[in-house]
Design a binder for these strands. Structure first.
Length: 499
RNA sequence: GGCGGCAUGGCCAAGCGGUAAGGCAGAGGAUUGCAAAUCCUUUAUCCCCAGUUCGAAUCUGGGUGCCGCCUCCA
């Protein structure tokens, strides 16, 4: 089987085939850098990160371009509010963006163009469109004439003859009057006085939103690319307009495959800045929810479906991850004890993986995993394979934790080792990487000094030795009420963690 | 009003015509003085109604409900 993807352009599941064999060009719509990213952004970029990792694992050379929109009303508004500049606001949020994405284990794009650094390309494209009669200027504004583009609406199923009957009340009358068609959109907007602006043949102004992506694709990847990515909320008007501009300017198809991810919902409603129902990635991470928990949470759903965000669902993912993680960590923590070779972090291609899997049972798991991803990135099924692979490893981790000296026989050990290698490699394709447990006994908070706790543990141990379990339990309970949990180990020692 | 999507156990979520993956929670058992962790076992006929078919959660038609886009938006 080979990779099949749902193409928004054709509304069908299609076998993916790149223009150049072995090479894949991808453009992903990035963020407008006026604020921190929220879980919705995380979903989008995590999902596309998996697509990218999967293509890489198949041996493809992937060029992944993602933009920063750093010219925008909201950035300007923020700059004004903070008594700063557009550049300062953008720079700050670009840094924040990288911090979040790195934390989530998202591979950095090959290049990240910015609108401010692509102005020549933007102006050239607008001029090209003007020459072709697909753009017209009105008092310093330049609009794209949608009627000139025969295919307009092909991505989002819009019909130009309908004239957008019911979008009333949402559009500024004044601007409407200047447009030839209600769907016409700005390629260049003239500057109001005092506003940050850039020179152009049409006067001082700023590029419209859609044109930057068209110009960047052309600049970074060429006329036709393999895959164009974005959130489903970008289908119209953003991507529709991008297609119109690019295809009119170059005369070539912009992208062969258009992929769109579903939204993150809160209480059934889309998470968004404007609704104010968003939770930032930063906030989630600082609450102690691990990056991999978020990844698991997101990848347990299919990427095109809406995903409801609730405290409960995150907690479920968190526990699920903790268990999966214990299996993923075992070869890193206990390879000496198990006499496994020292783990190397080499990334493997699917072909290597398949060749290395000797055991028939494992090759089935491996194939099941691959088939799942091939089927329009069915990460949900792929994850179920990981959980199934991890089961005996979790048990092993537990045995080691309890210091069971009688580990299983050699053959079984070998079996577990190759199981672990497969698990780690497959998990890596989803970007699920082992998170080594934090040092035990590390904690914040000042309710108790370590010495006090250790004293209590000693007292309890004495009570246990003298079979005074009532007292032992009382101490456990007292500590628990203060958020300290005791874990008795096989060797008679007691660990404790602060919650 | 137009375009698109979704409806599966207590919760989340796969399934793409052949008799319901996986995760969380729950129950029972093993282990443990207790607790935690771990393992084993276990819990559904798929929104409603009609139809196609030997056979449908899966296809068709009609309902009902929810969501997204049509304004900035991942």
């Amino acid at each position: 089987m080979s990779l099949k993807l749902t193409n928004t352009l054709t509304k069908r599941l299609e076998t993916f085939k790149s223009i150049k064999p072995g090479e894949v060009s991808i453009y992903c719509c990035g963020v407008t850098v006026y604020d921190l990213c929220h879980l919705g952004h995380a979903r989008s970029y995590i999902v596309w990160d998996v697509l990218r990792r999967y293509l890489i694992s198949q041996g493809s050379k992937v060029t992944f371009i993602q933009n920063f929109t750093d010219i925008d009303d909201k950035i300007l508004a923020k700059a004004e509010k903070e008594n700063s500049t557009m550049t300062q606001v953008s720079e700050k949020n670009i840094k924040e963006f990288h911090q979040d994405m790195d934390a989530l284990g998202i591979l950095r794009p090959s290049r990240m163009p910015r609108a401010t650094r692509c102005l020549d390309g933007i102006r050239e494209m607008i001029q090209e469109l003007e020459q072709k009669g697909a753009a017209y200027s009105v008092e310093g504004d330049v609009y794209f004439a949608v009627m000139q583009h025969v295919d307009y609406g092909k991505l989002s199923n819009r019909d130009l003859s309908e004239q957008q009957l019911n979008a009333d009340g949402r559009i500024e009358r004044e601007e409407e009057a200047r447009k030839q068609h209600p769907f016409d959109f700005a390629l260049w907007k003239r500057a109001k006085k005092g506003e940050t602006s850039f020179p152009s043949p049409w006067g001082q102004g700023r590029p419209g939103w859609h044109i930057e992506c068209s110009a960047m694709v052309l600049q970074e990847l060429g006329q036709t690319i393999d895959i164009h990515l974005g959130g489903s909320d970008l289908i119209f008007p953003h991507h529709e307009n991008e297609i119109a501009q690019s295809e009119m300017a170059t005369g070539k198809k912009l992208a062969n495959y258009w992929l769109h991810n579903g939204m993150v919902n809160v209480g059934g409603q889309k998470m968004s800045k404007s609704l104010g129902n968003f939770t930032t990635i930063r906030a989630l991470l600082s609450e102690g929810i691990s990056a991999m928990t978020l990844r698991l949470f997101i990848l347990q759903a299919h990427y095109r479906k809406p995903l409801d965000f609730t405290k409960k669902s995150i907690e479920a993912a968190s526990i699920g991850w903790r268990r999966l993680n214990s299996a993923l960590c075992i070869g890193l923590i206990s390879h000496r004890k198990l006499k496994w070779p020292k783990p190397s972090v080499q990334e493997k291609t699917i072909r290597d993986l398949k060749n290395n899997v000797s055991n028939e049972r494992f090759s089935k798991s491996c194939q099941h995993f691959i088939d799942a991803l091939d089927d329009d990135l069915n990460t949900s099924v792929a994850i179920s394979v990981l959980f199934e692979l991890s089961r005996p490893l979790k048990s092993l981790a537990n045995q080691i934790e309890r210091d069971v000296s009688d580990l299983d026989g050699e053959a079984r050990n070998l079996d577990l080792h190759s199981r672990w290698l497969l698990l780690v490699s497959l998990a890596n394709i989803l970007g699920l990487q082992p998170e080594l447990p934090l040092e035990k006994n590390s904690h914040q908070g000042k309710m108790h000094s370590d010495a006090e706790i250790i004293e209590a543990i000693k007292e309890r141990k004495a009570a246990k030795l003298s079979k005074d379990f009532t007292k032992a339990d009382k101490i456990r309970k007292e500590l628990k009420d203060k958020g300290i949990e005791l874990i008795d180990k096989k060797d008679g020692l007691t660990d404790w963690i602060k919650k």
